[in-house]
Nucleic acid binder design. Structure first.
Lengths: 159, 159
DNA sequence: TCGAGAATCTCGATTGTCGAGACATTACAG
DNA sequence: CTGTAATGTCTCGACAATCGAGATTCTCGA
């Protein structure tokens, strides 16, 4: 009935994966009494911690695509939950540094840990060459999306 | 500093792709004056249309993971925007069928069309064997997420 | 020193989401 | 056939996440 083109099939499949992951995150959010945005923020904060990036409200808001008022409210929530702590930057005192608390790491792991574990386990069915191919593919798709997003941001900022 | 494990790398990369796609959808939503949920609904409605599935409010709500009140409000919005039309099912008169309007298809294509096109173009850098590998990989990841989600839904429904 | 610009926060309004429950319809047991 | 349970959708009231506009505090270059 549809999709002879293997390319189209893959696009739909990739989207199906993102749909599933989003629903999984939403489910986790609901169970923990936090909102989908909070989970997304948690992801970025943990990434930042792992990569040694210094997180600030402005940075976080940019990552999530929300405005500054929402970011403040978001950080308030995360702070109230004990997931992050606000700390004035001593160098640039306009800035606030978001310090990820241990509890956030624990919470993040309780959700992502098992998921990651299962995914990595599934990957054992692929040899190194195949994983390299997948990696190349995902990088290409990410770049398409990222490039397209930047282009549209610019064109809307120009108005 | 991190990630010697190629498996972990891939998990993070997969997540990065979903983050980009979500942001892209959010950007599109904001530009068109609709909400992220509306875009997600549009995706599922177009899929249903393409696959010949008869969409109803209950079905749509289940796809999106929102409750019935939100679903009603969502369908109200979509109907007001002229994207779908409500139509009573003559066989089971409790049901309402969601008929996707041409305008929805046009709108969906204006967003997904170029994106899909670029992605398919990028895939020309892969031969058939490689695409088959990617397909196998994505199917595995989707199933991990889907299985995990169902498991957690069941465990929370049991309470 | 002064002014432009950056980073964060406050305020008021809008609106998407939820929980509980109403209503109509269908399915099924007796 | 009849009454009862289950299903699909919608209504209502409350909550809270988000936004736009603007205030505040601070940095940095002229």
């Amino acid at each position: 009935m549809d999709d002879q083109d293997p390319g189209l099939q893959l696009v739909h499949l990739l989207r199906a994966v993102t749909v599933e992951l989003d629903l999984l995150a939403a489910e986790f959010a609901g169970r923990e009494g936090l909102h989908p945005t909070d989970v997304r923020a948690l992801i970025h904060l943990l990434d930042a911690g792992r990569e040694g990036v210094r997180a600030t409200p402005g940075w976080l808001g940019a990552q999530l695509g929300v405005n500054s008022a929402s970011t403040t409210a978001l950080v308030d929530r995360l702070e109230r939950l004990g997931l992050v702590r606000r700390e004035r930057d001593t160098r640039d005192r306009r800035r606030v540094l978001l310090v990820v608390q241990d509890q956030a790491v624990t919470l993040g792991w309780s959700f992502f840990g098992p998921l990651i574990h299962e995914m990595v386990a599934e990957m054992r069915a692929f040899d190194e060459t195949e994983l390299a191919t997948v990696r190349r593919f995902l990088l290409a798709m990410r770049d398409v999306a990222a490039t397209r997003r930047r282009a549209q941001q610019d064109s809307s900022a120009r108005r």
